[in-house]
């Protein structure tokens, strides 16, 4: 049986099937906590633990699915080009906000971890926690963290932003819809963007673009900011 499960078709089929089922669940119960990625991950982990299958065995097939992260990051470049037209008029304000917000996100997560004396490997894995998962995973490979930890935390960050982002911004007096969209995309990537689209189409577009730009900014800056801050630790 072990040998059979080690065939790539097991990991591939399980992943796609579970993702499909997570969509059915989301249709029935439309709550943030039933985020499709979160539900899929939990279901797959439950199947693996229940049948005593290790991650390596599953990943024999699942790695063919994660391979597509590479091309999908390239595809985000196409998305960026297509949507850029819509922010052209506000480009300067948009870029300044995303750059500052993005840097605040990187610096604050590292400083808090350092203050708590958390191991360096955790800081190295969380520096990119606000950017879209495929980019965050690549950044973590470069900062020499653990990509699996990054992926898990990035998803949780997204759910946090999706669930509480708009209400927090409202309480703090941020009402401008473009500002709300930009903030959601910068701090909570694609999962935050899904929420921004519920607010308005323009908030969604700003959020998607902010997600792409913060991905680029974080990819360029996170390795340097991380080394600099860790040198004080």
């Amino acid at each position: 049986m072990k040998e059979f499960l080690a065939l790539p078709i097991f990991g591939v089929t399980l992943t796609l099937l579970v993702y499909f089922l997570s969509g059915k669940l989301k249709e029935k119960l439309d709550l943030v906590i039933f985020n499709r990625v979160l539900v899929s991950v939990i279901l797959i982990v439950a199947v693996l633990l229940n049948f005593n299958i290790d991650f390596e065995t599953y990943n024999n097939g699942a790695k063919y699915i994660s391979f597509f992260l590479g091309p999908s990051v390239v595809a985000l470049g196409v998305f960026l080009y297509e949507k850029l037209e819509e922010v052209k008029r506000d480009l300067k304000v948009f870029l300044i906000s995303v750059i500052i917000g993005g840097i605040v996100g990187i610096i604050s997560v590292i400083i808090i971890l350092v203050l708590f004396n958390a191991p360096e490997i955790i800081s190295r894995s969380l520096a990119a926690k606000s950017v879209t998962t495929p980019i965050a995973i690549e950044i973590t490979k470069i900062t020499e963290g653990i990509p699996e930890i990054t992926a898990g935390i990035v998803i949780i960050t997204g759910i946090l932003g999706n669930a509480f982002g708009p209400i927090v911004l409202k309480k703090m007096g941020v009402k401008n819809k473009k500002a709300v969209g930009t903030a959601l995309g910068t701090s909570a990537h694609g999962i935050g963007t899904a929420r921004a689209f519920e607010i308005s189409a323009s908030a969604g577009t700003f959020s998607g673009l902010a997600m792409c730009f913060n991905g680029i900014i974080t990819a360029l800056l996170a390795p340097y900011i991380l080394d600099w801050l860790l040198s004080f630790a």
Binding site: F67, I137, I146
Partner: peptide, 30 residues
């Protein structure tokens, strides 16, 4: 896009002990 990073999310199970040990600083930081 989201389908492609599900396997990485599942991979977190390998590091569950590390996260469990530091769940307070990780939660506060995040």
């Amino acid at each position: 896009l989201v389908v492609f990073f599900i396997p990485y999310g599942v991979g977190l199970m390998v590091y569950a002990n590390l996260i469990a040990e530091y769940w307070i600083p990780v939660s506060v930081a995040v």
